[in-house]
Design a protein around this nucleic acid. Structure first.
Length: 246
DNA sequence: GCGACAG
DNA sequence: ATCTTGTCGC
């Protein structure tokens, strides 16, 4: 039900993919988010090593309560290999299939990867943002490009990621004394908002324990949208979610 | 030329 | 990404 723009063909060679990125990057807009988001979606794919079949999924949550509003999943095939810098060409096609199955239209989308923290400033979050035509940002578990100073050990502290003089993202601590995650704007959003949304997606922040006080052990390094979607696609891969294929 | 390299 | 048990530290 949810729709998106088919800006270009995905059946391209690595060289053509790079050319497309250079062409598309001028359309990316980084800036304050236009409308306060009420829902947020997480995206991810899973697959068996050496196999071309991919299990893609999207989980939409209420930003206020972090309750899961909707789930979508598809079993597809990735015609493109994993090449650092060209991740979007491998993952976006199947994610768009899952997106089209959504009844809900998420206000903002989080990706497991980067946005502007990319060698050509157009990581999967930025690329997908152009197709989805809505705010998107990346929250990765490791760095592709960018140097940064270790942020303070407390949750919430962050330091800018620099690449050729540009602040391309932030190393953000989502949990005390735990490795940071790497946040960067994708499209129609700015770094500060992307950081705030990432922190707002901490499962231990609210809704758990007496008076909403989170007990120890809840609240993970990986924000809820990505964490839940990761669990979803892994379950899909193991055949534990036949309901999603229906 | 050498090393790095999201998922 | 995926394959896996135990183990070090708060």
């Amino acid at each position: 039900m949810a729709h998106y723009l088919q800006l270009h063909d995905w059946n391209v060679s690595p060289a053509e993919a790079v050319a497309l990125q250079k062409q598309l990057r001028s359309q990316i807009r980084i800036g304050p988010i236009a409308t306060p988001p009420k829902t947020i979606a997480g995206c991810d794919i899973s697959f068996n090593k050496f196999e071309e079949t991919v299990y893609a999924g999207i989980v939409v949550l209420n930003l206020e309560t972090l309750e899961t509003i909707e789930e979508a999943g598809v079993i597809s095939t990735a015609p493109f290999p994993y090449i650092p810098g060209l991740l979007s060409f491998r993952e976006i096609p199947s994610l768009l299939e899952a997106w089209s199955k959504l009844k809900t239209e998420p206000d903002v989308v989080m990706f497991d990867g980067h946005g502007t923290a990319h060698p050509r400033r157009i990581g999967i979050a930025s690329h997908a943002g152009l197709f989805l035509n809505r705010p998107t940002f990346g929250c990765g578990k490791s760095v592709l490009v960018g140097k940064y100073e270790e942020p303070a050990p407390e949750r919430g502290s962050w330091s800018p990621m620099l690449h050729y003089g540009d602040v391309v993202g932030a190393a953000l601590r989502t949990k005390n004394k735990v490795n940071p995650v790497y946040v960067s704007p994708g499209h129609l959003i700015d770094l500060e908002t992307a950081i705030a949304l990432t922190l707002a997606c901490d499962g231990g922040r609210r809704g758990v324990g007496p008076h909403g006080i989170a007990p120890r052990g809840v609240g993970y390094r990986i924000p809820e949208p990505t964490r839940r979607t990761h669990n979803l696609v892994n379950a899909l891969r193991k055949g534990e979610r036949p309901d999603l294929t229906t």
